[in-house]
């Protein structure tokens, strides 16, 4: 490599790394805004604004969904296995909505600590399997509930170590 080429290579690498540092610092400064949703822990700590539209996310707690038989009203609890958030919603839920499934809810946090949602979006995990496999897993005792038990353990451990601060997210 001639010295001129070497110099050029260093100039380009320097330019790219400086830009990378600038972008990295910007993203670090904006991390709270880049997160799509608040977790129930953050809401319990009072990080989320009241009576303004926010997004909250977590798992739908097992056994928490209660539907009004005469209307589309539904109430459920969103949990991150550390704190819980009660959600009220009136409308059509996505097909993937079920207990133990991840959701993102869009709505306003009211003074009573509940979130009144305008929109409920389903999240899904990165695992795919045919129905028969899912059934076989369930019969063998490895249902999604198993995954939840594991997550609950993690939640308990976090509780013992002290709830993580929002700055750690």
């Amino acid at each position: 490599m001639t010295p001129k080429r070497k110099q050029k290579l260093f100039v380009i690498l320097g330019l790219v790394s400086l830009t990378a540092i600038a972008v990295g610092l910007t993203l670090y400064a904006l991390r709270a805004n880049i997160n799509l949703f608040f977790s129930p822990v953050q809401i319990a700590q009072g990080d989320a604004p009241m009576e303004r539209q926010i997004r909250a996310g977590g798992m739908v707690k097992e056994g928490s969904v209660s539907r009004d038989p005469d209307s589309l009203d539904v109430a459920f609890t969103v949990t991150d296995y550390v704190d819980d958030l009660e959600v009220y919603y009136s409308g059509i839920l996505p097909d993937l909505f079920r207990e133990g499934q991840g959701v993102v809810v869009v709505g306003e946090l009211q003074a009573d600590g509940r979130l009144y949602a305008d929109k409920v979006l389903a999240r899904h995990d990165e695992n795919y399997m045919p129905p028969e496999v899912a059934q076989a897993l369930e019969e063998a005792g490895y249902s999604p509930a198993d995954y939840q038990a594991k997550a609950a353990e993690v939640g308990k451990r976090l509780d013992e170590e002290g709830v993580p601060q929002a700055s750690e997210y």
Partner: peptide
């Protein structure tokens, strides 16, 4: 649309 319930979200 069928899985999340929305076609766009300003997520990262």
């Amino acid at each position: 649309v069928p899985t999340w319930g929305t076609w766009w979200m300003w997520d990262a």
